[in-house]
Design a protein around this nucleic acid. Structure first.
Length: 187
DNA sequence: CTCACAATAT
DNA sequence: GATATTGTGA
């Protein structure tokens, strides 16, 4: 039988600062905040390699503050995709032949991450696909809109040139084959 | 108010 | 399974 822990509603807040949020400041770095899947109940989640660089760890924070729950304690559990988990995700993704051909089910099966469900992978995959498409396009657009020739004298646009090119420290770029250069669409 | 993310609905 | 929509947090 499956006792099923029923719907555990634990307050879990996800604060993922992944992605280079450009926002108005445009300046943003990737702090890579490790998330803690704090399971108020059975925390037997598969211990994914926590690349903690000698930081954090010593689980000696929060907890012991039941009544001190933050005022904004959402009762929703949003799956937090830690950078590591994402790494694995991408890894498996590429193993399957690409984000566009990989199926959520296969990904889930290959990842073998406990607690990870189809829907979560599906959603994440969607996001990833869009993200990849975007970066891809930008990549191409960059190559196209690049300025290989500097107009001698003043290689900078004089009239208020807004730098759009964000330092994309993309981890993995350029997959294997499958590179369609769609029309360049600019907002 | 815009952005990105995850969940949910189609 | 792919895509759209919605809800939410920053």
């Amino acid at each position: 039988m499956m006792p099923s822990p029923a719907a555990d509603l634990f307050p879990l807040h996800e604060k993922l600062s992944e992605s280079r949020v450009r926002y108005k400041g445009g300046e943003d770095k990737v702090p890579l905040l490790s998330l803690s899947t704090v399971e108020t109940k059975d925390l037997k989640e598969e211990m994914i390699n926590n690349y903690s660089s000698g930081l954090s760890s010593t689980s000696r924070s929060m907890a012991s503050s039941p009544a001190a729950d933050s005022k904004l304690n959402s009762k929703k559990r949003r799956r937090c995709w830690s950078p590591d988990l994402h790494r694995k995700f991408v890894s498996v993704l590429q193993q399957l032949g690409g984000a566009q051909v990989a199926t959520p089910k296969q990904i889930r099966e290959l990842m073998q991450v406990d607690g990870l469900t189809n829907d979560e992978v599906k959603s994440h995959l969607q996001k990833y696909r869009v993200h990849v498409r975007r970066t891809d396009k930008v990549s191409v657009a960059k190559s196209r809109g690049e300025r290989p020739c500097k107009t001698s004298k003043n290689g900078n646009s004089p009239t208020g040139s807004l730098e759009l090119a964000r330092s994309m420290t993309e981890d993995y770029e350029e997959e294997e084959e499958e590179e369609d250069v769609s029309e360049i669409n600019n907002q």
